[in-house]
Amino acid sequence: MEAAREIIKPTAPASLAKIAEKVHAGVRLEEDEAVQVFQSRDLLTLGQLANVVRERLHGNRTYYNRNFHLNLTNVCEASCRFCAFARLEEGMPQAKTYSVEEAVEFVKQQLPNQPTEVHMVNGLHPGLPFEYYLDVLRAVKQTAPSLVIKGFTAVEIHYYAGKYGMTYEQVLTALRDAGLESMPGGGAEIFAARVRKKICKDKADADQWLEIHRIAHRMGMKTNCTMLYGTVERPEERADHVLRLRALQDETGGFQCFIPLAFHNDNSPLRKLNEPTGFDNLLIYAQSRLVLDNVPHLKGYWVMVGEKVAQISQSFGVNDLDGTVVSEKIYKMAGSTSPNALSTADLRRLITDAGRLPVERDTTYNVVGMPL
């Protein structure tokens, strides 16, 4: 019988040798090492190391789900400079606010695809009563009781608390009682105050975002977390952002997935900035996987980076490609040219052609059926 071949670990450059040693040993990177990782542009070395972590956590599995997006309103009084989705008031071109009945009808139209999740993220509409959101949640759950509602960013929770005179916990409790089961990670952007002052000065700050997720976790709700990259942030500010997420995860254990979000410049006030390249996207995935060691899943959001980069990302730390994503609007209005939806067959092909095993999941990563 042929002797087993010895697996030889790639030799890392001297500048990353200590980091590589710790990664292979499963030892956490310190803060200064996290900064070093985010300052490095050595994509292949970081990618190889990130794949070690990815396969240690998930083996050859890549997850996807059957989901669709429902943005109840894009009317928003915030002035985020990276955003092409928001409209300041009703009546403006492309402004849209669903009635409860329209929202229910939209959900009904998606049910033949057998979705397990609706992703519900909205603008900060100054004219809607809080009861509107509760009515929508109740109506959706009545229409599709098994459909998990993942919705309302921490920015929205902060806005509702201030607008309607409630605490964060009161807002979350009311939404949960009406049908909300999980929260997305949007609105985190970059935690650095310097950057937030330039790109999103009039919405929830970093401490408020983190506190809302802390409360949601304490209430037993699983949430996601994100980082917007490619505007005016520096590598060390990216590292700080991920480290602050890591610290909260140490405390609560409530984050289940991290999604790096690439800036798209079309139709936004920051349109003169260059967008992240494919190299940048893969680098962020690898860097994040190495530093954010306690959030189990890393998502390559195909709507944002395109199908080809999302597929390649499975070798750079990513173990989730999101889902069917019917009717995504936020990135579409910022110039994304990716399809409006992918079928489950499309997603499985992206996964299997990269040599990975496709696994359909639900919102909290329970396996739906058996892996193919």
Rank of each mutant, 00 (worst) to 15 (best):
L46C: 05
I330S: 10
T62A: 15
L88N: 12
V368C: 05
A216Y: 04
V232H: 11
R196H: 05
R138E: 14
P10R: 09
Y64V: 07
N67C: 00
V242A: 14
R194A: 03
K308A: 14
V140H: 05
E237S: 02
V35D: 11
A178I: 04
K96W: 08
K222D: 02
D346E: 11
P371D: 10
P371S: 11
G187I: 04
K163E: 13
Y133T: 01
P339T: 10
E307T: 13
A206P: 05
R349G: 02
S343H: 11
V242W: 10
L342S: 10
F191M: 09
Q208L: 00
V309K: 05
E131I: 07
A193D: 15
A206I: 04
E6I: 14
A25Q: 09
G187R: 02
R28Q: 12
M370P: 01
L248N: 13
R138C: 02
M219R: 06
M183F: 09
T153S: 15
R41P: 00
I19F: 03
R348D: 13
Y98N: 01
D346P: 12
T45F: 02
D346Y: 08
E117C: 01
L46T: 03
A262Q: 14
G162Y: 08
V242M: 04
I259S: 04
N224F: 04
K22E: 09
E360T: 09
N51C: 07
L124V: 01
H241Y: 07
Q109Y: 01
E77D: 07
R196Q: 03
R87T: 02
K299C: 07
L147P: 00
E31C: 03
E55M: 14
R214D: 14
P269I: 04
A4H: 11
D320N: 15
R87I: 03
S182T: 12
T173W: 00
C225V: 15
A86E: 08
G230Q: 12
F152D: 01
P145T: 01
A247Q: 15
E328V: 02
L292S: 08
A34I: 09
N340F: 03
A3D: 10
E31H: 08
H58F: 14
V303H: 04
A247H: 12
H58T: 09
A286I: 05
Y229N: 11
